[in-house]
Nucleic acid binder design. Structure first.
Lengths: 194, 194
DNA sequence: GGAGTAGCCTAATCATATTAGGTACCGAGG
DNA sequence: CCTCGGTACCTAATATGATTAGGCTACTCC
């Protein structure tokens, strides 16, 4: 019986593909084993547990996502950068629903902290906001607003939460524009705004 | 052996409580049966399936959420209403994480359509936005922006997604303020904005 | 070419969902 | 009071999936 030649990376990649095809919740060790023509138990040589597998997929997806965003944002600033950031974010979420869903799971904070993807994400996000001239704590508030809106929009959209006729892309563009506006006229901590 | 005296409503309510305590994903028929001191199979007299149970919890939570929001928004307008809406939304999400998580699941569109909660939610949301004087399609875009931000923020917050020191309530207040600002200076469809 | 290890397997256990069919308790009508 | 029907709950069985323990075998390296 020829071996499947599995490695941890292969298994995680296959799990990510499976997630995109069948939904992150349907990523099961059995399904994965079936896909490789292997027994369930064999996968335990490569991942510690289902939990471990999911965490690995989440980290993979997080890395891919920020790479896409970084590429899109490179060389841009201001609203240009914001639009590119938003576009790359949503495109990834729509192209890879399973991988994107993986990024939403609760992960051990320690694991996140030393993941390079996380650092990179913070760098790029704060870098993009530099053009708006915000200082702390407004900067953190703004980052939270952006993350929330992007994430919320993509989550609702891929859950079929937007029932109205209105074109979803058009609403997205408008939302990004509105966020740019909010960032431009940000209500600063110090009372003398503008 | 005394009967537990179950009904569908009791089972669903218990499932909602269980969700808040242990997480929506840990709502299992076995756990629920255990809580009632009953066998798993017995629950099938009251709910059709696990799927059915989850849908019922989702509808329950959706109804509770919009009731809270309606009460908070009543008699307010403009930014006042927006702040009240946002506050009630987030309070519910934080007080009832399991129920709130339930509202995020994919539900048969038909079921949603004729749920009174859904109609009520639309009414109240659009009503709240009336003060901003938006017309379609801006109104729909604005509703999508609000829903996305509120949902995204609560989802990230309860997933422990906000690592920075900055007070989470303060960021929320600022986000709501920023949204108010965006709504006030909304980039309208017609080109002559402002 | 022999030893070691990595990759895969069998077998077993446990939790959970779900179905089929049985039993017992409840209140209503005779 | 007693029986009758339905409802609430049960037992039993099947299936899927996670997980562990322990074994076999085919490459790899010396």
């Amino acid at each position: 019986m020829a071996r499947a030649g599995l490695t941890t990376d292969l298994v995680v990649a296959a799990a990510a593909d499976l997630a995109d095809e069948s939904g992150f919740d349907n990523v099961t060790l059995s399904a994965l084993a079936r896909r490789f023509g292997v027994k369930d138990a064999s996968l335990y040589s490569h991942v510690r547990s289902l939990q471990d597998l999911r965490t690995r997929v989440a980290l993979l997806a997080g890395g891919e996502l920020i790479d896409r965003i970084a590429a899109a944002v490179a060389g841009r600033a201001g609203m240009d950068a914001l639009v590119a950031f938003a576009g790359a974010y949503r495109a990834y979420a729509l192209e890879h629903p399973g991988r994107y869903a993986a990024t939403q799971i609760r992960i051990d904070q320690a694991l996140i902290a030393d993941s390079p993807a996380m650092r990179r994400t913070a760098e790029i996000t704060y870098g993009m906001l530099r053009a708006y001239g915000l200082g702390e704590p407004d900067l953190t508030d703004a980052v939270r607003l952006l993350r929330s809106t992007f994430h919320g929009y993509c989550a609702l959209e891929s859950a079929g939460g937007f029932g109205a006729d209105r074109d979803v892309q058009a609403s997205w563009d408008k939302a990004v524009e509105a966020l740019h506006l909010a960032l431009t006229h940000w209500p600063r901590e110090t009372k003398n705004d503008d």
